[in-house]
Computed example of a mutant assay.
Amino acid sequence: MLIKATIVAVLVVILSELSESKIMDKCEVARALWQKGVPDWEVPTWVCIANAESRFDTYAVNRNTWDYGIFQISSLWWCQSGDTPGKGCNLSCNSLLHDDISTDIDCVRKVYAETEAMGQRPGFKAWTTWQPHCSGDNWHWVQGC
């Protein structure tokens, strides 16, 4: 009985560490966007979208829509469920669940560009949270960063 309880305890610890999220702050997100060369005028809106989509949680998964990561990238079109790369961004959805959001940023830039190429301007329209939460002046999201 003691061995069984020990095994269960060890598994709980391992699983909790594997699923531990990092909640970034707005300036960490802004710096990551700037480091990837995102235009200054877009950065405040991306920070707002990250807040609206995931509350800055790098390990966020919406179990209803199967959107992944800090920007909630859709597995329907942009990432392949599991660990195999695929779909529009040619990446696995699991690769969006980590503290380094550079892969996420590369994908959102692609989604943005393709959305605009389809005549939907601005490309932020691909995110349902943009219109109600982030379509206005978002400069306060990067103040102090």
Rank of each mutant, 00 (worst) to 15 (best):
Q120D: 12
V29L: 12
V61H: 11
D57Y: 02
R31L: 15
S92R: 03
I3V: 04
V47W: 01
Q131P: 03
D25C: 05
V43P: 03
I70M: 09
T84N: 10
V29N: 09
A126V: 00
L76K: 02
T58F: 04
D67C: 01
N138E: 04
V47M: 01
M24D: 06
W78Q: 01
C27M: 06
V12N: 04
S135A: 13
I7H: 10
I23F: 08
A113I: 01
K4F: 06
G82Q: 06
T128A: 14
W141I: 07
S75K: 00
S135M: 08
P85Y: 01
E20A: 13
S92V: 04
W78S: 00
E114P: 02
I23P: 00
R31K: 05
V10L: 08
S16N: 13
K26N: 07
A30D: 10
D40W: 13
K110A: 11
C89N: 07
K26T: 05
L2E: 02
D25P: 03
R31I: 14
I3R: 06
G119Y: 13
Q131S: 08
L91F: 05
P122K: 03
S81I: 03
E53V: 11
M24I: 06
V29G: 10
C107H: 11
G37T: 06
G123N: 03
H140E: 03
W66T: 00
S21T: 13
V8W: 10
N94P: 08
A126I: 01
V38D: 11
S135P: 00
S95D: 15
L15W: 09
F124G: 01
Q35T: 12
A60P: 02
M1G: 01
A117C: 09
V43T: 14
D25T: 04
T58R: 00
T129D: 03
D100T: 13
L97E: 14
V38H: 12
L15A: 14
N51T: 08
D67W: 01
L91Y: 07
W127T: 00
T128D: 11
C48L: 08
S135N: 12
S81M: 05
N51H: 13
C134S: 11
F71I: 05
C145E: 02
S102C: 09
Q72V: 08
